[in-house]
């Protein structure tokens, strides 16, 4: 019979999809800006010792609360420490807390969510209630508790932020698993007698990856702001270690004398979290299955 199936004229669908995604990403300048700025912050965090003009704790008693100058581009604080250097060093705490708390939350939430969504039944109900319990303790309350029990530190703040981010991720992973278990290829794997672990790792997890990446990209900026909040309140990074939140806390006493001390760290937090949010929004747009096909 002389007919041509239209689908046979298409090339390898996976390569086509990848090319489509790249095309879509390149068509979103804001996402590219987000990626570049986020990478810049990460580079600053890693290479702060090399990039920063001064050490974070070097004091210059000839220049207390100095305005910006050739020597101190963003001026100095009340102890004569270079603000620019402290902001560059401060990126470390923020990126660390942002990335590690998100990784922690993923490591906890994804397996739990997948199990709840895939098996459903009583285990789903139990996990749902436990997630509710977790939600009833906002991250600040958890941080307060951890600070009281273990003492305040960046590590404990990171743990609190990770716990705080987990419930939302559990729900996302659960929802995805719930939908994926109905997919034909999962059913086929079940019918072929594949073990549950194999199905979850080979078929369910990879297919929710793009959603999880988007979720992670939006969890990072929330954690970055969260770290600043906790350090500001004295529940996170402890002075003299530089952190944007600590800098803002110190600046609070000089709001009328030197408001710029409160301005710069805030802008750093804002730009850093904005960059991740822009990237996350861009990724969401291009990976959205409703628009990708």
């Amino acid at each position: 019979m002389g007919f041509v199936d239209a689908s046979s004229t298409l090339i390898n669908p996976r390569a086509r999809r990848r090319r489509l995604l790249r095309k879509r990403f390149l068509r979103r300048p804001l996402a590219i800006v987000g990626l570049v700025v986020a990478l810049t912050f990460i580079v600053c965090a890693i290479f702060a010792p090399v990039i920063a003009p001064y050490s974070a704790s070097a004091t210059d008693f000839n220049a207390l609360l100095a305005h910006s100058s050739r020597h101190h581009l963003l001026g100095t604080d009340e102890l004569g420490r270079d603000v620019l250097s402290r902001i560059l060093w401060g990126a470390r705490a923020s990126i660390e807390a942002g990335v590690f708390s998100t990784l922690l939350a993923m490591a906890v939430a994804v397996p739990i969510g997948i199990i709840a969504g895939y098996y459903r039944g009583w285990i789903d109900a139990v996990i749902a209630r436990l997630t509710d319990v977790l939600l009833a303790f906002p991250f600040l309350v958890v941080a307060v508790g951890l600070a009281a029990i273990l003492g305040p530190s960046l590590t404990n703040a990171t743990i609190a932020l990770g716990i705080g981010a987990a419930p939302a991720l559990i729900r996302v992973a659960r929802g995805e698993a719930l939908a994926l278990r109905e997919e034909d290829y999962v059913r086929a794997a079940v019918a072929n007698g594949a073990s549950d672990v194999r199905i979850l790792i080979r078929h369910v997890l990879p297919n929710m990856l793009s959603t999880l990446i988007v979720q992670a990209t939006v969890a990072i900026p929330a954690a970055i702001i969260g770290e600043a909040v906790l350090s500001f309140l004295g529940l996170g990074v402890q002075p003299p270690t530089p952190s944007w939140g600590v800098m803002l806390a110190d600046a609070q006493s000089y709001l009328s004398q030197a408001p710029r001390l409160a301005v710069y760290p805030g802008i750093a937090i804002f730009l850093c979290s904005l960059s991740f949010n822009l990237l996350g929004d861009g990724l969401r747009d291009i990976l959205d299955p409703r628009t990708t096909r």
Binding site: M1, G2, F3, V4, D5, A6, S7
Partner: peptide, 24 residues
């Protein structure tokens, strides 16, 4: 009918049914 409705990204300068048509 074998085959399927073509994607309409471009209007063919031909009978659109030709690829599926035994008389084409």
């Amino acid at each position: 009918i074998p085959g399927r409705v073509p994607s309409l990204a471009e209007l063919p300068k031909a009978c659109a049914f030709a690829p599926r048509c035994p008389r084409a």
